[in-house]
Computed example of a mutant assay.
Amino acid sequence: MKIIFRKKRTWLILLLISITAASVMLMRERFQMNEVSPTVSFIENDMTNPNGTLATYLQDAVSKEADIVAGREALSESLGLWMQYAIASDNQALFEQSYEQLTTYFLTPPDPYIAWKLDAKGESHVTTNALGDDLRIIGALLQAADQWKQGREAKFATAAAISRALTQSAQQQGYLVDFHDFAGGHSTDTLSLVYVDLPALQAMEKHQMVEPGTYAKYEALLEKMPDDELFYPKTFDVVRKEYTYDDKVNLIDQLIVANHLMVTDRKPDKLISFLKKEFNTRHQLPGQYKRETRTPAVSYESSSVYGLAILLAVRSGDPKWAKQLYNHMITLRGQDSRYPGGYVFDGNTHLFDNLFPLLGEINLQKNIKK
């Protein structure tokens, strides 16, 4: 009897330990998902220049080429993502700060267009835009104008002015293209598919900032684009009407396209199934894959991949997978004790490797609260 009692007592103790551990983990997850992310503090304290612009890299460096970003230079890409976070977190004050950054530093008269890059002092030395960043910012301005009453007309006017610059200058063969040189007066023939921001284009048409039928044209471009039974092309040549693929597939690009497809009838089911299988098998998602063999091309992980995958999981109605991705993603955060909220490796980080995770995190948090 004593032996049986001891066995029962041991079993009960082990059961209680398991329940306690599970409860602690659940409480930890709930705490993390309901608190303001420490990544916000990291961005505000360590990735913000004295003038308020967002630095691209944590460590300073000198840009050796005009078309390559370095050090504390600021990107329109970062501004747009930060605006999206402000909207998702319903932080109007933060959005107003971002809007001031846009109008003070990034808008270049007389058109005005958005300079894609600034130096750390907020001065522009480039004469080109970046379409994907422009559409993201326009979409954010329109969403903010719909979400908050304060400054609504000014935001509509700014969005309309940027839209005019794009439609009047940055089009080839009836398509918006990756960039236009506003000083040289020439545009590329390439449209990167990651730049086809359908939600932004839909909002622009709704507010009569593009011609009727514009959204349908770009929706058809994504719905009818080919694939190799898994991965999407990288670019569309608007003159030759040809799609091109990369031999090495960047998952960030694939996931951005997949997220845009979620508003169409063509869902990225094959990519989602592949990524879920890869994550379950490898317990991680490498940043790049070899297109032909469907095998990892690199050993590193990208926090941006997980942030975008979380967004895709939330939008596809799969909160379980989203939480699994989130729980793995935050193991990459705070590995450098000097920057507890940052995704910092070898003493440095790129800002989008913090902004995309932040967007995934806030959208998962909102989904859980519903």
Rank of each mutant, 00 (worst) to 15 (best):
R266S: 03
N259S: 07
K248H: 12
S273N: 14
N280G: 14
K267F: 01
I272N: 08
A258H: 04
K248G: 11
I272S: 08
A258S: 08
F274H: 13
Q254N: 11
A258W: 09
D265T: 06
P286N: 00
L251P: 03
V263Q: 04
P286F: 00
L271P: 07
M262N: 09
I256T: 07
Q254H: 13
D265S: 06
S273M: 10
K267P: 06
P286A: 00
D269V: 09
Q288T: 07
L261D: 04
T281I: 07
Y289A: 00
I252Q: 09
R282F: 08
G287K: 13
L271V: 10
K270C: 05
I252S: 03
T281R: 10
E278R: 11
G287M: 15
Q288A: 05
D265N: 04
S273H: 09
V263R: 05
D253T: 14
H260T: 10
Q288P: 08
I272P: 01
A258G: 02
R282T: 12
V249K: 01
N259P: 00
H283E: 15
V249F: 01
D253K: 06
R282A: 12
Q288L: 06
L251Y: 02
L275A: 03
K277E: 15
K277Q: 15
P268R: 10
N250F: 06
K270N: 12
D269F: 01
T264P: 01
Y289T: 04
K277T: 15
L271K: 10
N250K: 05
D253C: 11
L285N: 03
K248W: 05
I252H: 07
Y289Q: 04
V263Y: 02
I272G: 07
N280K: 15
L255A: 03
V263T: 12
F274S: 06
L285I: 11
T264L: 00
L271N: 12
V257H: 12
S273C: 08
T264A: 00
S273Y: 10
V257A: 10
V257M: 12
R266L: 03
Q288G: 03
L261Y: 04
V263G: 02
M262S: 08
K276G: 06
K270A: 14
